[in-house]
Design a protein around this nucleic acid. Structure first.
Lengths: 130, 130
DNA sequence: CAGAAAGGTATCTTTTTGATACTGATAGCT
DNA sequence: AGCTATCAGTATCAAAAAGATACCTTTCTG
């Protein structure tokens, strides 16, 4: 990859790819996509898996993913209701780059934690010796 | 890639890789890393490139990137001051997965915008015919 | 009739972002 | 000497987003 290449439009705040990048980067969105990779899942199951997320925020996340065409929402006319969420082909295609990024994160967790510790220690030292 | 594979720890809110994923997904952080791919750059230049970002937020972004060991901050003892930001090896290694994700975003912008339009139209129709 | 189940909303509080103004050191100009 | 400009940020306050908690709807079961 040519690391010196940077498309000009990435710098444009109105650039759609930047808006999309933001969606991918969303705290919950990327997690949901990765969970959905295992197959369709209903709301309550998703909530259990991605625990600590509140229903409001999960709903918002799912709505934006649906709006962007990454997932589908299927309501089954039952009582109690059953709603399934599933990746679209577009969502599936996102899997690969997202997986690579996750792989990078997993591979470099130790380096990052080490860097954080070093930084925090340097900070503490600086406060003691201003 | 095996899309059915999902590491259990991704679901753990305390999992470091999840925290890191959040950093990567940060609105400005990923953009800064991509700009820094072109080489070292000083604060004011960075601000001009990533326009619309306020100095406070840019500083915050740079600090977290520095803390995570992705960039270095070099202060030159001059007046007016000169501070250069540069990718570390770790930051450079992030380039590739990030670039692939950007490539995905660019490739799929049309599909996503189309999906959004369709979704919004469906919403409008639903409001008119409840 | 009471309670449970599923998939959410409604409401309120807290945290994060963002807009705007300002600082501190010095060099060059008048 | 005083004025202004440069650079890399803070400080302060307002707006937006995220999060916690309670509640709603329909139907079935005990």
């Amino acid at each position: 990859m040519d690391t010196n290449y940077l498309p000009a439009n990435v710098l444009d705040p109105d650039c759609p790819s930047r808006v999309i990048f933001q969606r991918i980067g969303d705290k919950w969105a990327s997690l949901v996509v990765q969970v959905l990779a295992a197959g369709p899942i209903r709301f309550s199951e998703l909530r259990k898996m991605v625990h600590v997320v509140t229903p409001k925020v999960l709903t918002q996340t799912l709505r934006t993913l649906e709006r962007d065409g990454l997932i589908t929402r299927t309501v089954h006319a039952q009582v109690p209701p059953r709603v399934d969420y599933e990746l679209t082909d577009l969502g599936i295609s996102l899997q690969e780059p997202l997986g690579l990024l996750r792989q990078w994160a997993e591979d470099h967790v130790p380096s990052i934690l080490e860097a954080r510790d070093a930084y925090d220690e340097a900070q503490d030292a600086a406060i003691l010796n201003p």
